[in-house]
């Protein structure tokens, strides 16, 4: 009988830790993996020269192109987006084609990273976003 209060206290602590962990986990997941729709265009004068892609240890793992662009959402709000596309045929390539200058892109960007991106048509871009892209290129 004496052990009961201790057991309940331990169970309550575990419950608090689990709930707090879930709340923290949701915040992290949302910030990292939940993307919002943005649109961008690769500028006509954008340098698409390949360079070495390095791992976190500084080891060269392949070659590819870095894209650092300004993207706009349907309300015309801007944010910087950055992602790298490996050269086709290299071991780290995911089979994506490297967008060329003038290409329009749909980008799903979370607070921290670009979750997904793909090439898109100009007519698939919301009016306000397209207006901002044109204004800034």
């Amino acid at each position: 009988m004496k052990k009961r209060p201790v057991l309940w206290i331990v169970l309550a602590l575990v419950a608090v830790v689990v709930v707090a962990g879930a709340i923290w986990g949701k915040q992290y997941y949302d910030a990292r993996y939940v993307g919002a729709d943005y649109y961008a265009m690769v500028p006509q004068d954008y340098d698409t020269t390949s360079h070495d892609i390095k791992s976190m240890n500084g080891e060269v793992v392949g070659t590819g192109v870095d894209y650092k662009l300004t993207a706009y959402n349907a309300r015309g709000e801007a944010r910087p987006v950055a992602f790298t596309v490996a050269d086709p045929g290299t071991s780290i390539s995911r089979g994506e084609e490297q967008p060329q200058p003038g290409a329009y892109l749909w980008v799903s960007a979370s607070k921290q990273i670009v979750v997904r991106w793909k090439s898109t048509e100009q007519n698939a871009i919301p009016e306000k976003a397209l207006e901002m892209i044109r204004k800034n290129h």
Partner: peptide, 14 residues
């Protein structure tokens, strides 16, 4: 059940 509910909640934003 609790674990699954928590996983669903964490992923619900996406």
């Amino acid at each position: 059940a609790v674990t699954y509910a928590l996983v669903v909640y964490v992923r619900s934003g996406g």
